[in-house]
């Protein structure tokens, strides 16, 4: 089955596209999809990303269905600038 994967922020630049349709096994869950991307991005980015399914944050156990919208989300940085950076 196919799911649509959306990329944001640094991942959109890394993959040089905003989205892709990806073929996965029927019955695949978020954790299995996560593994598909292991090795396709820097380890730090892979470990720190969250995944949303149909616009809700989804843990690894959430099942995917044909046509789902799956978003790969780098750590967010909205709001006022720079507080996170200053602590480092």
């Amino acid at each position: 089955m196919q799911v649509r994967v959306l990329y944001f922020g640094v991942l959109k630049e890394l993959f040089a596209c905003p989205s892709e349709d990806i073929e996965v096994e029927t019955g695949c869950n978020v954790g299995e999809l996560r593994k598909v991307f292991h090795g396709r991005m820097p380890e730090r980015a892979w470990k720190s990303m969250a995944i949303a399914v149909n616009q809700e944050y989804a843990g690894d156990e959430v099942l995917l269905f044909e046509g789902d919208e799956v978003a790969l989300l780098p750590p967010v940085s909205g709001g006022a600038p720079g507080d996170a950076c200053r602590r480092r």
Binding site: F8, G9, V10, A52, Y57, A71, L73, P74, V76, S77, G78, G79, A80, P81, D83, A84
Partner: peptide
């Protein structure tokens, strides 16, 4: 908001 709302910025 800064931890959970999916918004990103490029500096």
């Amino acid at each position: 908001l800064k931890k959970t709302v999916p918004i990103w910025k490029k500096e």
